[in-house]
Design a protein around this nucleic acid. Structure first.
Lengths: 350, 350
DNA sequence: CTGAAAGCGCTTACAG
DNA sequence: CTGAAAGCGCTTACAG
């Protein structure tokens, strides 16, 4: 179909061996030959066939990432993932790696088969994983198969961990402290999925934060979301329907918080005055929400780049400088918690 | 490394030919043999090596998509792309295709090299393209090379077009009509990039809509954004600084509108009362904005699935039922334009 | 410094 | 119904 190495060799009356070596910068090729080959190859538009190279080299120079979509498929609209994928792509490109992407609902049969097929079929050299679950079969599977991978968040298992951890726990402590300082006491939490590592950490941070402030935790104030705006909206509605509603709502992530703000707004509750609402992520839209959203910011793009970097370096059998990176979220205080606090409409239940 | 077809054949004392054919459902294999092969292959965890198959079949069963990122890389946070990629992945998976993703700034050298490398290196069988430019080299290039592709939006060129078009023009007419009906007359437009097909259509729709309503268009009311919230924010600031600011702002997309709402809010201008703001896309966060955003909704996920479907069917040399699909955006009227209109603070300039 | 040859793991005419 | 063989386009020990 396209120009092959054979075409280039023929044109120059050289062997394909020499052409291949010239292009790969082996040092046992005459300089004059190399130059000739390089120029001619470029001129002829020669690009090594990917499949042939993969087959011969027994590696793919490709990393895989599987999006944690809903089973519904639609409504998968968290800008977190746009940024994350952009980061993965850019880092992969910088190393002449490719990024293979697919989508599957977390913990589904589809997910399992995808990972297995990609591993067995030799589609990728390694994986980047996020939205890690507390007990995540992916991590066990990849470790057992000795497939390079870097994950955002470690699971609870004792496995060797390569990846990045964000200190959600201390971030939440700081956030709760901020809220308490502003006078908020009846603070609710909207979760993502209970088996997510980040949810686990953030909930613990929330609870410990309350305890440190001497606030008794009220189970009615912990409600389930699903990390979407829609979920945040419904969760907030439940909270507002309580006999003693919260005066602050801490959300697992920004899009959840945006949904919660919507629910507040619909009831005429003014965010930042009547109620405080907070997020986690630092997506661009959070800065532009009405009012701008107080959040724990994490550098999504950069995290993605680092994860891709770890994975591809593992795939290249290089030793990593840092196998485990810890990052601190940065508390961005904005108007959604910034105005002078309202009076607490009631006391926390016993 | 992994189980190969040879391993399976050896175990069953069959030739690799027979194993291959049994697994591929050729009809000249004894039923009993086929069953045996299928069961054994599954048991042994055999998955055909992707590179070998690609090399032999001379096709990749992979479609490519290149994200139009900023050169900066960071801040690429439009949920449009999360949904779009989810759609591409899901459709590709359904046909046992893979999705290769990379990122490059529009019209950059990097973009050019990526497309060329992917084509020459036989990395993908076809492409899905969006954010089409008026005069888009990608479309010319892929047509010339006879590479299957489907694009979201056609360019201005006369090339055969396979893909989806959205009727931005009539959508905007309808939107402007809605605004005029509500009494808004001084209507501004925040653009994306002037060379984008969608921007071209939407701007024309805006202008024609004004004309139909007998409103003279004021060049000062047309300002540049960049399809991000940040861009929308700054564009709106410019508009608010005009001696006679607009009473309505029509934005190229939803995230731009969210940024514009922020700018309004910051100046104490109440959106939906003091000013109308509209978007385009129908992303989830638009429904949850404060106030919820009036927008022209398009089914992003489904569009992506259809584009992927077109591309992979072209790659499979099947004839498409519809080479060109036109869709109508759906006007979703929400509170950002819904409240009773304010008095116009001034007359349009001559 | 250069080339002939093997082989990566498949698929697919072709022969029987 | 089954198998032996060629060949997809590379890379890389090995020989000279």
């Amino acid at each position: 179909m396209h120009t092959t190495i054979r075409d280039v060799a023929k044109r120059l009356h050289l062997s394909i061996t020499t052409v291949s070596r010239a292009l790969d910068n082996y040092d046992d090729v005459a300089d004059s030959t190399r130059k000739l080959v390089v120029v001619t190859a470029k001129e002829m538009g020669y690009v090594p066939n990917r499949a042939a190279r993969q087959l011969r080299r027994q590696r793919t120079d490709t990393i895989g990432y599987i999006l944690p979509t809903d089973s519904a498929g639609t409504g998968f609209a968290d800008p977190f993932f746009s940024e994350f994928i952009a980061g993965l792509s850019d880092e992969a490109s910088a190393y002449h790696f490719d990024l293979l992407v697919s989508a599957a609902p977390p913990d589904s049969k589809i997910e399992k088969e995808l990972y297995k097929r990609w591993v067995q079929g030799g589609k990728v050299d390694g994986f980047v994983i996020n939205r890690v679950r507390l007990n995540d079969w992916r991590l066990r599977f990849l470790a057992r198969q000795h497939i390079p991978h870097a994950s955002y968040e470690r699971s609870l298992s004792k496995l060797d961990f390569v990846g990045i951890e964000i200190d959600s726990f201390n971030g939440m402590l700081e956030l709760i402290e901020h809220l308490v300082e502003r006078g908020y006491k009846r603070i609710a939490y909207v979760s993502g999925a209970p088996n997510l590592k980040i949810d686990h950490d953030r909930l613990r941070g929330y609870q410990t934060g309350l305890k440190s402030a001497g606030i008794e935790s009220d189970p009615a104030l912990i409600v389930h979301g699903d990390m979407t705006s829609e979920g945040g909206y419904h969760a907030a509605e439940l909270l507002f329907a309580l006999s003693v509603p919260p005066t602050a709502i801490v959300c697992i992530n920004d899009v959840t918080a945006i949904g919660a703000m919507h629910a507040a707004h619909e009831r005429g509750i003014v965010v930042g005055r009547d109620i405080a609402i907070t997020g986690f992520d630092g997506i661009e839209d959070a800065a532009h929400a009405t009012p701008p959203l107080t959040t724990l910011d994490q550098p999504i793009y950069s995290i993605a780049r680092q994860l891709a970097n770890m994975t591809l370096n593992l795939a290249l059998r290089k030793t990593l400088e840092n196998k485990q990176i810890k990052i601190q979220p940065r508390l961005l205080i904005r108007s959604s918690t910034d105005e002078k606090r309202c009076s607490e409409p009631g006391k926390a239940k016993a």
